[in-house]
Design a protein around this nucleic acid. Sequence first.
DNA 1: GGGCCCGGAGTCG
DNA 2: TTCCACGACTCCGGGCCC
Length: 659
Amino acid sequence: DSGSVVPYPSLVAQSESTQRNTSKSGSASTAAMGTSSSSSSSASALIISACDKAGMEGIDRTRVDEIIMRESAGSVYMKQQQKRDQNVNVKIDELKQKLAAKDYSMASINSNATSWRRAGEHALEPIIDELVQSRPRRSTCVVVDMDGFYISCELLSRPPELGNLPCCVGGNMITTSNYVARRYGVRAAMPGWIGDKLVEELSNGKERLIHIPSNFDLYTRKAHIIRGALAEYDPNLRAYSLDEAYLDIGPYVDLRVGRGWSHERVVATLASTSKHSCEDKEHVDEEVGNEEEFIHCNVDISAIAAVVKEMREKVKVATGGLTCSAGLASNFMLAKIASDQNKPNGQKVVGPSHKEVLEFVHPLSVRKVPGIGRVMEKMLNAFDIHIVHDLYKERALVQFLFKPASARFLLRASLGWSNDSLDPSAPEDDEVGSSSSASGQKGISKERTFSAGKSWEELNSKLEDVCRSLSQSMVEKNIKAHTITLKVKLHTFDVITRAKTMPRGIVLQNADQMIVEMTEMLLNVKRQHKGTFSVRLLGVRCSNFQGDEERSQDSGQMDISKFISTCSPIRASHNSLVHSTGTTKMTSRIEKKVDFAQKGAQTDAQVKNTDISSFFSKEKGWNKVEEFETAQVLDSGTNSTHALHSVDPGNVSSVPASR
DNA sequence: GGGCCCGGAGTCG
DNA sequence: TTCCACGACTCCGGGCCC
Ligand SMILES: Cc1cn([C@H]2C[C@H](O)[C@@H](COP(=O)(O)OP(=O)(O)OP(=O)(O)O)O2)c(=O)[nH]c1=O
Ligand SMILES: [Mg+2]
């Protein structure tokens, strides 16, 4: 359609209260008609407990939502959520105006308000082609996620009958619940008393939610056992959290299934080769064969699935009964999504072909994509994008609406092939790029919530406690930091942070030193703040670790002119850095890394014609019709260094200056 | 132009 | 009667500096 064009100037800011969700099922262009987007219900859509998590299928979520809303109605917390919600609505309306302006200007030239999208889609074709081309051809990425981890750990050492009752870990705040409790809508990040209410009311008073205090050490111990079991299958596994691990079992299945080796022999080989570097690499090549053989080793996917099943069983035995679920796919984004599909105690395989990938990912809610949270979901929904397929269908619109990094991420997600850093589910495949400090940790923090309305003296006392506690952790971990940040949460739930980076040569670890800085900062915050200074949380964070900066040769200061003019080898930093840092793994691993993170070298040819942001952003002056019709996204000499397929440049290029 | 710093926000488990 | 954590990471925009 699109015949009718909205006069741009008529788009006045909508009053948020007047929406009635007019944008039924019309295409996103309906949204462009200026009807205020914004959510339908007055309740903040950001907080209702979307019962879409594992173990919560088919429960009467209307009643759950009703109880939750009733329990939190009018609370300060709720008011804060509504404020957030309103801010998102404002953002949405801004985007809609931006879109309307685009359609309008296009229409004035072309008499067709939305044809620019076709052109945009056309411009995306080569990029999509390349992404599809570079897709891994095997499903050997595994995400293992423990079922109800904390609560399962707790129930292990308790009478089994307890497992049939609704249980959770945490008192005032629930960190997780068992699957019985989930049937009542009780879930992580829910305050305890709401969980109580849910169970009480939805069981008609027959049951009560059982709270078990948290025992973090227990979970940490179990986590180590789990990793030990999993490491047999991939010694280079990434532990994303206590209960979640990312593995590439390609090498394992090649030897175990492809070569028919025994489990023990495979484990021994992998273990001996993964650890160290160059010498071992040759050793591996002898023992394992060359990489072509590796790659073309066509292992039946059901055989890989069988390996995963066996692996899960080993975890269960090693932990004394903890179950886990797993996803098996050709990349970690898909594997992560898949790991949730057959929870608990199940697994899901996604084949590597383009067809299989799309069949899997397209019907899913965009919310399933790791990295798309409540806010992004709401924004997408406002443009009638609900499932991943919509994300693909509206790819031109998405490219136009969002910032390059987000747009890139969303496009890749819509193709089932994402490893952007916006997606935290893709842990870096190792130590090459970032922080030389052993753990790779970038910050450490401590924060405490207490009843609001404390006196000034009490506040300072709390702050000292937090500082001392943090300091102790830093001593234990041998961490010294350059930057310290104070966090203050007011009784309204508004958060204020203030940071200070110490002068050269001064480093933070000592408690008294931190206390000095923090108390001064707190005083400043208090002075700046107008209105009653009623605090419910104080926190301290240290970052910018000493030893994290390291190699920053060439610290000499240059004349400013050099900075501005000579901008030649922007992109060289990528390749050369990856190269020069020296990767120390066996060939097959490196191969893998290219598949996973696409960090390998890119040819200049690849770099060309890939920055589509310039195509959609009118700031660059690309919004004239001619360009759209020729649809060439040329580019480039400029800043188009981050192509859609180049991933997470931040990580590789983050070599901070010396301090 | 690009790096670092700061503060706000979003996301995850 | 009340009552919504904590630790970690990333990105973005604005300011300052070379
Ligand atoms: C989501 C979440 C988890 N956690 C902790 C408790 C969880 O047991 C642990 C792992 O998180 P999850 O894997 O998200 O949850 P889960 O393992 O308890 O349940 P399942 O995977 O079967 O759906 O992390 C929090 O402390 N806060 C949170 O908000
Ligand atoms: Mg889990």
